[in-house]
Design a protein around this nucleic acid. Structure first.
Length: 416
DNA sequence: TCTGGGGTCCTAGGACCC
DNA sequence: TCTGGGGTCCTAGGACCC
C-alpha cells in the first residue's frame, strides 16, 4: 500500500510554529519580492484570498481582515521539510519526497493502516508542530484521492483516510471531480468534460486503448492507477534531472550589461547547485522575457539552448556561455522583466565521458571547491565570480520576513 | 510602482542515416 | 516520365505538478 502524507498549508503552518499567536488567525505567505500569495491558512482561504493573489491588489483586504502577512522564508521551510521527511523515514525505508511539503511512502506491513496513519500524523505534529493529512491506498493516484478526502473532511476523518476495498474506491472516485484529479489540469479537464467525463469514476471506466489514443500514456497510467492497478512507481532517487535559477526583476531592465550581470549571478547559482548534488551539465537553456502582464501586445519571450563542449559544473564556464547566449537574445529597445538559467543533460561529475578535443581546465575544480568552502563558512556570496557586480547586492523585497529559527544560531528562538 | 519559482514528463516534427 | 521508406535521435514547447 502507498501512503501520501501532505502538510496542510505548509508555508503558513511553518510560520505559525514559531509565532503561535497566529494559530487561529488568517495568515498568508508571499512569493519572492513579496509579489503574490503562495500559501494561505484555512482562515485566509475562508476570507476568499485566492492563491496567486497579487499582494499590491490585496493590501486593503489584508489590513481590513487583520491578515498576518509573511515574506517567504525558504531556509526555514526547507529545514522544516527535511525534519518531516526524516520522521517519515522512520515508518518506511521507501520514501519518495514528492515536493517540499509532501511525500509518498510504500507501506509493507500487516499492521492496521489507519493506526499507522494516525501515528505518522501525531509524531509529525508533536516533533515539528506541523499539521498533516494522510491518504493510504493501493496506488499512488488513489492515495492522492484519499488524502484529498482526509483534508476535506478533517474533523470527521481525523486527517487519515484509507481506501482498502472496492466499494471505498468507487465511492471516493465518484466524489472526486475530474479537474481535481492529480495529473488532470486545466486543458485536460476541459476536454474531458466536453466528452461527458465529469468525475474520476467516469474517467476510470474508459477503455485503455481509447485513452491512449485520445491523450497519451501519461493519462493511461493515471487511469490504471485509479482503477487500483499500481502503474506509477515510487521514485526514490534524489538527484535532479535539471537545475534552474530564474527570477523576475523588481523593475524592467533595458540595459544589456545589467541583464548580463543578472545572468552571471543565476549561472553561478546553478553551478553551485550542480556541485552540491555532484552533477555536471551538458546543456544550458538561457531565457529572457518581457513583462507577462503587459496588456498591449504579446511580450517578448525567447530562449536559447546551448550544447556545451564538455560536461561542467564550473561557475566560470557556465557563466561564460550564458553570457554569450544572452547577447544573442538581447534586442535593444525592449524592456525585460524576467530571466533565467537552466542546466540540463545532467551527469554525475565522477564519470565524465572523456572528450578528445576539449575538456575543462583542471584548475577550475580546485577553484570551485575553494569558493564553495569559503561561501559555506562566511555566508553566501562572499566570493563572487568576476562577471557579477561586486558593489551591487541585489536585494529582494522582503518586508515581512520571519527569522531563520532553525538554521541560524543568532536567530534561534529564545525562551524567556 | 508592485503579479513566484523550480521541477517532471510527453509528443510532434525536423534532421539525419542507410 | 519516374522521385522510397523506415528508423533513430534530438529539440522545442506544452501540460502538469507543488
Amino acid at each position: 500500500m502507498y501512503a501520501l502524507v501532505d502538510c496542510n498549508n505548509f508555508y503558513a503552518s511553518c510560520e505559525r510554529v514559531f509565532q503561535p499567536q497566529y494559530r487561529n488567525t488568517p495568515v498568508v505567505v508571499l512569493s519572492n519580492n513579496d509579489g503574490c500569495v503562495i500559501s494561505r491558512s484555512d482562515e485566509a482561504k475562508s476570507i476568499n484570498i485566492p492563491m496567486g493573489a497579487p499582494a499590491f491588489k490585496y493590501r486593503q483586504q489584508f489590513k481590513q481582515h487583520n491578515i498576518k502577512v509573511f515574506s517567504s522564508n525558504y531556509p526555514l521551510y526547507g529545514d522544516m521539510s527535511s525534519r518531516v521527511m526524516g520522521i517519515l523515514r522512520q515508518f518506511s525505508p521507501e520514501v519518495e519526497v514528492y515536493s517540499i511539503d509532501e511525500a509518498f511512502l510504500y507501506l509493507n506491513t500487516v499492521e492496521n493502516l489507519k493506526d499507522i496513519g494516525h501515528k505518522m500524523r501525531n509524531r509529525i505534529l508533536q516533533w515539528t508542530g506541523l499539521p498533516t493529512c494522510v491518504g493510504i491506498a493501493p496506488t499512488k493516484a488513489l492515495a492522492k484521492v484519499a488524502n484529498k478526502i482526509a483534508r476535506q473532511f478533517l474533523s470527521e476523518t481525523g486527517g487519515v483516510v484509507v481506501i482498502d476495498s472496492e466499494s471505498k474506491r468507487i465511492k471516493a472516485l465518484k466524489w472526486t471531480a475530474i479537474n481535481k484529479v492529480w495529473g488532470v489540469g486545466h486543458r485536460l479537464s476541459k476536454r474531458l468534460k466536453q466528452q461527458n467525463i465529469h468525475t474520476a469514476y467516469d474517467f476510470s471506466l474508459l477503455s485503455d486503448a481509447w485513452v491512449k489514443k485520445q491523450y497519451s500514456v501519461t493519462e493511461l497510467y493515471l487511469k490504471k492507477d485509479l482503477e487500483g492497478i499500481a502503474t506509477l512507481n515510487l521514485e526514490c532517487t534524489s538527484n535532479k534531472k535539471s537545475i534552474a535559477t530564474t527570477r523576475s526583476f523588481e523593475n524592467s531592465y533595458t540595459d544589456l550589461n545589467t541583464i548580463k550581470e543578472r545572468i552571471a549571478t543565476f549561472a553561478n547559482s546553478c553551478a553551485e547547485k550542480l556541485r552540491k548534488q555532484q552533477s555536471s551539465c551538458n546543456m544550458l537553456i538561457i531565457l529572457l522575457q518581457g513583462n507577462r502582464f503587459e496588456k498591449k501586445e504579446v511580450p517578448y519571450k525567447n530562449s536559447i539552448t546551448i550544447v556545451l563542449p564538455f560536461p561542467t559544473n564550473s561557475s566560470l564556464t557556465i557563466a561564460k556561455h550564458a553570457s554569450k547566449a544572452v547577447e544573442q537574445l538581447y534586442k535593444k529597445g525592449l524592456k525585460y522583466k524576467r530571466a533565467g538559467v537552466i542546466a540540463t543533460g545532467l551527469v554525475p561529475t565522477q564519470n565524465h565521458q572523456l572528450t578528445i578535443f576539449s575538456s575543462e581546465n583542471p584548475k577550475h575544480h580546485s577553484l570551485m571547491t575553494a569558493m564553495d568552502k569559503l561561501n559555506t563558512k562566511y555566508g553566501e556570496n562572499k566570493l563572487k565570480i568576476a562577471n557579477q557586480d561586486l558593489q551591487r547586492t541585489w536585494k529582494m523585497r522582503q518586508e515581512h520576513l520571519s527569522k531563520q529559527y532553525t538554521t541560524k544560531f543568532n536567530e534561534i528562538l529564545i525562551v524567556k
